[in-house]
């Protein structure tokens, strides 16, 4: 059952990545692009977790954890730049 479900899940998550990427290219405003980047990294975590289940290897989890942390910090830094025009005050 898992054998049939995992390719469907891959397809859905990849489509999600494509849609977020389209929004990243299209904009139109800076917050839209940041939101698209934010969604893109969360989708990447989904893809990595799926890969971990598919290949039966827990090592991908570490990468997912790092992406989650770096992605959040990146989003906050970009938002702060938009709000204040500066990151470190």
């Amino acid at each position: 059952m898992l054998i049939t479900v995992i390719p469907i899940a891959y397809a859905l998550v990849t489509l999600a990545l494509a849609l977020s990427f389209w929004r990243l290219l299209k904009g139109p405003d800076a917050p839209d692009r940041i939101l698209a980047l934010d969604t893109l990294y969360v989708n990447t975590i989904a893809l990595l977790v799926l890969l971990g289940i598919h290949l039966g290897n827990a090592i991908y989890f570490e990468a997912a954890l790092l992406i989650a942390m770096m992605g959040f910090v990146g989003t906050v830094a970009l938002c702060k730049y938009l709000l204040r025009g500066d990151i470190i005050e």
Binding site: A9, L15, L19, W22, R23, L35, A36
Partner: peptide, 14 residues
């Protein structure tokens, strides 16, 4: 369900 919700979230974004 997880993959479907991930997709729907990005669909909303687009």
């Amino acid at each position: 369900t997880g993959a479907a919700f991930t997709f729907i979230g990005s669909l909303g974004l687009a």
